[in-house]
């Protein structure tokens, strides 16, 4: 069972995926300067009715192993310490400790 923050992040990811197209359409109308102000305002109001977890900025890449939200190496999806542990164990192909 992942930690609560990861569950929240998964929820946000699902919300973003489900509402992305509708949100994009409203964004396009709201930011379009060639449309009448009333229409744009209405689109902006509609945008504000979407929930918190439909915005892509609420998604945060977390560590696959521990759920840590900071110091995550994006290429491996692991936090820096988990990355070190796995690399030293030889579980990450092509990664080995530098020595010269």
């Amino acid at each position: 069972m992942p930690c609560a923050r990861v569950i929240r992040d998964i929820k946000a990811r699902k919300g973003v995926g489900a509402n992305e197209i509708a949100r994009r359409a409203y964004l396009m109308v709201a930011r379009n300067q060639t449309l009448p102000t009333q229409v744009r305002l209405h689109a902006q109001m509609q945008l504000n009715t979407f929930g918190r977890y439909t915005r892509p900025t609420t998604v945060n890449n977390r560590c696959h192993e521990t759920g840590r939200g900071r110091g995550v190496i994006s290429e491996f999806g692991l936090s820096r310490f988990q990355f070190r542990i796995k690399a030293l164990r030889g579980e990450l192909p092509g990664v080995h400790k530098a020595s010269w």
Binding site: R13, G17, H64
Partner: peptide, 25 residues
Amino acid sequence: SLRTGAKYFRARLRGPSMMAYYPKT
């Protein structure tokens, strides 16, 4: 040079890759 909002349609959809971030458990 008015903003037409075309960039919101031009940008790729980010949802599918976002949902595939965590490996399946």
